[in-house]
């Protein structure tokens, strides 16, 4: 499938859910961390609309301490891009899958090869937080050719004059970075979260999801007043690090789902 014309599976699925009146919930889980496959399945069963699977990288500059720790543990346990991706086709979720990783893991094998590996593993979309719009053209093209959507990040610092181009380039959804900083829960929702979501919504009708810094169901609800939904990562991974296992993740995701559904 070529994405040059048309919309990929991630975007059509999320648009469909949004049209049904749902606020969207995307859940991040570090691939390769002990018990991650079961956690992905329970997250989906508990109401995640899509799953973001982290492929651990040695130098995760956009990640805070929680995801760093999980990534490091996964690497030490021997996780590689192929070991993580090989498990994806067997995951029983019923929702689209994105990978979230760093650009060198796509650059090293080569864009075409990495994109093909993703497509063949049942991955619908990719998020590469250290690949900004200005450097992203060649990757986006290679990914689109095999039907993989590239989700771009819009930051609070992204100027108004670049936002339309960025949102137009983004496929799957637009990832609105909720604050200035790296991944990790914060005690309150940053004021930047609502602002950036609003600015994105003004220039695109693609789903706009806010991520980075969402630490509670209440914050998720607050962020989703403007945004179409949220991405939660560190809160989920912390459950795994604390030994909560797949059940703990399921409970946590269910609490976000319930809060978002209640509005």
């Amino acid at each position: 499938m070529n994405l040059e014309s048309g919309v990929g599976r991630m975007e059509s699925f999320l648009r469909g859910r949004r049209d049904d009146g749902a606020k969207l919930l995307v859940v991040y889980i570090t691939g390769g961390y002990e018990g991650w496959e079961a956690a992905v399945e329970t997250a989906a069963a508990a109401g995640a609309d899509a799953i973001e699977i982290g492929i651990p990288f040695s130098d995760p500059v956009m990640d805070g301490p929680v995801i760093q720790e999980a990534s490091q543990a996964a690497l030490e346990a021997g996780a590689t891009p192929s070991s993580v991706l090989a498990a994806v086709p067997n995951l029983d979720t019923g929702v689209p899958h994105a990978v979230m990783t760093y650009y060198n893991l796509a650059h090293h094998p080569g864009h075409e090869r990495f994109a093909a590996t993703l497509a063949n593993s049942g991955i619908d979309a990719a998020i590469l937080p250290d690949l900004p719009l200005v450097e992203s053209g060649p990757w986006r093209q290679a990914a689109a050719e095999v039907g993989v959507e590239t989700i771009m990040l819009a930051a609070p610092t992204t100027p108004d004059d670049r936002l339309p181009e960025l949102c137009a380039a983004s496929q799957g959804f637009v990832y609105a970075v909720g604050l200035l900083g790296v991944t990790g829960e914060r005690s309150t929702l940053a004021s930047t979260a609502t602002e950036i979501a609003k600015r994105c919504k003004n220039v695109t009708d693609k789903p706009v999801l806010t991520g980075v810094g969402i630490g509670s169901p209440e914050q998720a609800v607050e962020a989703s007043v403007v945004a179409d939904g949220v991405i939660i990562g560190s809160a989920v991974v912390r459950r795994l690090l604390d030994g909560g296992g797949a059940d703990g993740v399921g409970e946590l995701v269910a609490s976000y789902r319930a809060a978002l559904d209640a509005g």
């Binding site: 500059v61 937080p129 250290d130 900004p132 450097e135 930051a155 610092t157 992204t158 970075v177």
Partner: peptide, 12 residues
């Protein structure tokens, strides 16, 4: 070379 940093840092 190039500028492979998160979007947040591009304006900076």
């Amino acid at each position: 070379g190039g500028r492979f940093v998160p979007e947040t840092l591009i304006p900076a």
